[in-house]
């Protein structure tokens, strides 16, 4: 069994089926990318792993626990953090308050302060804007803040939902670089991307999801050469 193992999952929104027998796995230390078109079920998958949605059938196991029915806030405490789609920064709170909220489950204030400083070290732009309201930041800075906020718990598994969305190519490269760093420092990463090209550059392995189920999978380097992936997702 993989470190994170999603097995035969069906998930419904009301009567609409979003995931159909979805299965995939992530090993500790990897960067795994979930690729696919809008509405394929990628975000749903991340939110299910995060405990926001619960599957109708199937199971989610992680780090030796069955987490299928564990609530979102508990999972954060256990070590799963998510950078949500659209960043979802608390817009009227300052950068620092946003980061403090990221450390909500961390009881020790000194630890939070230390980790916030580490985020400022990793992303100096945030440090310069620490007392500015989140809503006043640029898109790229907001994405950095969303990632920084998720790092305050020192997660074992980091889930990222479309971190490149709405960013200029140069910024996309920067964000991917940061994610690469985070992974090298020991955090396992599961990333959902429509920008397959950018994601495949940093990922070790990838899954292609279509209509709620996995249609292709393999090492990132191989998928980047796969004719079907190139045609459907790399736009070449």
């Amino acid at each position: 069994m993989s470190w994170l193992e999603v097995k035969d999952v069906d998930l419904f929104y009301g009567k609409v089926q979003a995931l159909r027998g979805l299965s995939f796995g992530v090993e500790q230390g990897e960067i795994v990318a979930l690729l696919g078109n809008n509405g394929a079920g990628k975000s749903t998958t991340l939110n299910m792993v995060s405990g926001i949605f619960r599957p109708a059938t199937g199971s989610v196991n992680w780090d030796g626990h069955d987490i299928t029915k564990i609530k979102a806030h508990k999972l954060v405490e256990m070590g799963i953090a998510q950078v949500p789609e659209g960043r979802r920064i608390f817009s009227t709170m300052t950068v620092e308050e946003n980061l403090k909220l990221g450390g909500y489950t961390v009881r020790d204030k000194a630890t939070i302060t230390r980790r916030i400083e580490r985020v400022f070290h990793l992303m100096p732009r945030l440090g310069e804007r620490r007392s500015q309201e989140g809503g006043t930041l640029s898109g790229g800075e907001q994405q950095m803040l969303a990632i920084g906020r998720a790092l305050i718990t020192s997660p074992k598994l980091l889930l990222l939902d479309e971190p490149s969305m709405g960013l200029a190519p140069l910024l996309v490269a920067q964000v991917m670089e940061i994610i690469h760093h985070i992974n090298e420092a020991g955090t396992t990463v599961l990333i959902v991307e429509q920008n397959a090209k950018a994601a495949l550059k940093i990922a070790h392995r990838a899954y292609v999801i279509d209509n709620g189920t996995v249609t292709l999978s393999g090492p990132a380097a191989e998928l980047a050469q796969d004719q079907r992936v190139i045609e459907a997702y790399l736009g070449m």
Binding site: A72, A81, R88, F90, M93, K100, L101, Y104, T153
Partner: peptide, 24 residues
């Protein structure tokens, strides 16, 4: 306070708050 911040966070975005580990 930490709890006060959590309240403001829920007021702004309930889902994001729970993704921060806030017990909504």
């Amino acid at each position: 306070t930490r709890e006060g911040r959590a309240m403001r966070a829920i007021a702004l975005d309930q889902r994001a708050a729970s993704l921060m580990g806030v017990n909504v």
